[in-house]
């Protein structure tokens, strides 16, 4: 399962390779080894949507991994005497006052840079947990069917019925010490159902494929069938959904932080900053614009990536 996330972009169902008309004859001469992953990658590389979103995501990942590379300022220390609500200096690239200062005299640029890590970690963490757990549930329900399917599907339905944010608020309210792990856990606890459903459907389609039958006829065990035959062929739609969902988890974290149910007040987080900024938007819009803008761009990048991957996977959209 963990290798699910290794190459989210490089997955393509067989049909995608036929030209849209399906009129092309089969290759008389077989070319060099061209894996389906490789073909999808070649296709994706040519999509501007994929290139732009991919570069943005790379940037965000870099910022969250090495914030020190981008700023030397301390996001926590404020200087109220000099910098109280200082306005942005848009010409001062990468300097402390680039995006201005907030009402505690802290550099907004530094806070945006350091806030990326929390948001991205929550987003990635939730996606990973949800994909592994939801994927497992969906795979077992889809593959074994019958009683297990009924049981697991009903449990999925129960969790599906809980409103995502409301549920997260209730859960997080029970914790006082809310760090990355608690928030990730709470969101994953409520968010796995979507992946489970998608995975279940994909596995049901795949398990009836002839090559699965062929593996059974050879005497292959359940483990081999699941992990060599079913999973690699059922994982494409899950990757698409997970990529798009990643953005929404980041939004959820920010919403919770905005509501005071996310990160503790001393943590750096886009959501908390947005919450702070709302006290005085009219006079100091810059305190809102930069953290909110970064949030939007990050989320958009993930959704765009998901779309690009889905288009590469779905021949009907060509």
């Amino acid at each position: 399962m963990p290798d699910l996330m290794k190459s989210p972009a490089a997955d393509e169902p067989e049909v995608a390779l036929a030209p849209p008309s399906g009129k092309a004859a089969e290759a008389g001469e077989v070319g060099g080894a061209r894996s389906l992953w490789g073909d999808a990658w070649r296709d994706l590389r040519r999509r501007p949507l994929f290139v732009i979103s991919g570069l943005l995501i790379l940037l965000v990942l870099l910022v969250s991994a090495f914030p020190g590379l981008f700023t030397s300022a301390d996001p926590g220390s404020g200087d109220l005497t000099n910098n109280f609500l200082g306005s942005p200096q848009l010409g001062h690239f990468f300097q402390d006052d680039w995006f201005g200062y907030d009402r505690q005299g802290r550099s907004i640029y530094a806070r945006v840079v350091f806030g990326a890590r929390n948001s991205v970690m929550v987003g990635l963490g939730v996606t990973l947990l949800v994909t592994v757990f939801g994927g497992l549930v969906g795979m077992l329900a889809g593959y074994f069917g019958g009683f297990w399917d009924s049981l697991l599907s009903r449990i999925t339905d129960v969790f599906f019925g809980i409103p995502f944010l409301l549920g997260a608020m209730v859960v997080l309210n029970a914790f006082t010490d809310r760090d990355v792990w608690v928030i990730t856990g709470a969101l994953a606890f409520l968010g796995w159902t979507q992946i489970a459903r998608v995975m279940r459907g994909a596995v049901i389609t795949t398990k009836h494929a002839d090559y699965v039958m062929a593996a059974k006829a050879l005497g292959a065990g359940t483990k081999r069938i699941l992990f060599r035959h079913v999973l690699p062929n059922a994982v494409a739609p899950v990757i698409v959904v997970a990529t798009i969902a990643l953005g929404t988890y980041i939004v959820a974290e920010s919403t919770l932080s905005y509501l005071g149910l996310g990160f503790a007040s001393d943590a750096v987080s886009w959501g908390a900053d947005i919450s702070d900024a709302t006290q005085d938007i009219r006079n100091n819009p810059h305190t809102l614009i930069f953290p909110a803008g970064m949030l939007s761009i990050t989320v958009l990048a993930f959704i765009m990536l998901g779309d690009a991957v889905r288009e590469a996977l779905d021949p009907k959209l060509r």
């Binding site: 067989e14 002839d210 090559y211 062929a214 035959h229 062929n233």
Partner: peptide, 20 residues
Amino acid sequence: RRNIQMVFQDPYTSLNPRMT
């Protein structure tokens, strides 16, 4: 099973597209 093997109808669906 080693001694009884099968050849399937549809050569397009009986081979796992992800394997060489």
